[in-house]
């Protein structure tokens, strides 16, 4: 259904776009420059395509089994980055600023990128409000992780400790939001 919807959408868009650019301006009656009948037909076909795409999307998000593995990848990435930030916080006393830079680059950035790449699974599965709640915490966590990196590069050790602590709080909150949303409804 999605493919058929896509085909109709693009046929409709092609028809409508052709109507938009098929004539030079009619100086006597400018609004008659556009062949509105053809334009409306194109738009109507496109709208049918959009409806089919949306129905298909809605059916897929209800039958969420097909996105289970994607969801697990996203959830695992978030848990990995949260866990690694906890480890960073606990090992901070023994680390140098150079170690922190390397740890964030090597251990934390890749799972953050994986989570961010797959984040739209959360919209399909839980809706926009859960997505917003998780992403708000995740983004704050990632920003404080980036701040810890900058402070390490500049040697401000108190700020490194503070930023890692904040990042830990936010990433933990993101995991908690996701866990809460994923619990079976009673």
């Amino acid at each position: 259904m999605a493919i058929f919807g896509q085909i109709l959408l693009w046929i409709g868009f092609l028809g409508g776009s052709l109507a938009c650019v098929s004539r030079l301006e009619n100086k006597d009656d400018k609004w008659s420059t556009i062949p509105w009948g053809i334009y409306a037909a194109g738009a109507a076909v496109g709208i049918v395509g959009v409806v089919l795409i949306r129905i298909d999307k809605s059916q897929k998000s209800q039958a969420s089994a097909d996105s289970e593995s994607d969801f697990e990848t996203v959830r695992d990435s978030l848990q990995i980055v949260a866990q690694r930030i906890v480890e960073l916080d606990e090992k901070l006393d023994e680390m140098t600023c150079e170690d922190v830079l390397e740890y964030i680059d090597e251990q934390c950035v890749p799972p953050c990128a994986d989570f961010a790449d797959g984040r739209h699974v959360l919209v399909n599965r839980f809706g926009t409000s859960v997505f917003a709640a998780v992403m708000t915490e995740f983004a704050s966590g990632e920003r404080y992780m980036n701040r810890a990196w900058s402070a390490s590069a500049d040697g401000y050790v108190d700020e490194v400790e503070k930023s890692v602590r904040y990042a830990r709080t936010f990433f933990d909150a993101a995991v908690a939001e996701l866990t809460k949303a994923n619990q079976p409804q009673t």
Binding site: E98, A153, E159
Partner: peptide
């Protein structure tokens, strides 16, 4: 945190 080979440690607020 331990002192490293190249980055000088500083304390206090991060400007």
């Amino acid at each position: 945190m331990r002192a490293g080979p190249s980055i000088k440690h500083m304390h206090g607020d991060y400007p």
